[in-house]
Amino acid sequence: MEYGYYPGCSLTGSAHKLDVTLKKVFKKLGHTLKEIPDWNCCGAFEYGNRNELVGFSKSNLKKAEGFCNEIVAPCPACYKNLKEASKEEGKPVSILHPLDMFEYSDISSIQAKRDLKGRLFTPYYGCVLLRPEETAIKNKDIMEKVITLFGGEVDGEKVKDRCCGGNQFFINKWATERLSTLILDKTRGDLLVFCPLCHMALKTFSKNRKILYFTDMLLYLMGETNTL
């Protein structure tokens, strides 16, 4: 399948690793991502004026018109903003999050080259992928399922939807440090995330834990990378 792609600012910058690994995973699963021409920033959570904020994503929907009917938006903030705009506009275009596209059947049919035996992971979803309900993803435990399917052990169920404080990172970093540390302290193993901001917050405040994107794990299982 061919999908429209909205990488958003972070995947073209600091989260370039997520962009690269995600594209590889999609290619392996037989999907093509076509970047929406001339997309603009979604505004993240930086605007107090709701109309102004939704306006950014409405503009992106316009740019995608006639280009694609489905938009893949990996960054949780972009995903939420686009989804809200498309609901408000009543547009037929669907906004998809990669986690909702990785169906269990697809994943279990991966010609796995490796397994996760003897490894321990905390799948961490954070806030925006799971809340509010109207824009939340459907596959709320896909990361757990994949870990167990390939023989790994899961931890951190209780904190998987707690807040890492990423949003306060460049305002009051002590708050982010406190919240991320709570998550790190209450979990064991390597942390598996999808949100670029969670990745940065947890990585910054972890002493020696590995913070991995879920896509890193998929590529490892597919035999595309040698270490995880």
């Binding site: 959570f45 107090g48 709701r50 806030c127 509010p132 990423g166 949003n167 306060q168």
Partner: peptide
């Protein structure tokens, strides 16, 4: 932190973080 825990737990799903954002802007 814009975590939406309040919204998700609220019986009326009031989007408190968005109200806070509007306040910050104001």
């Amino acid at each position: 932190t814009n975590c939406y825990r309040c919204t998700s737990a609220c019986p009326w799903k009031i989007r408190i973080p968005e109200v806070v954002r509007a306040l910050r802007e104001d």
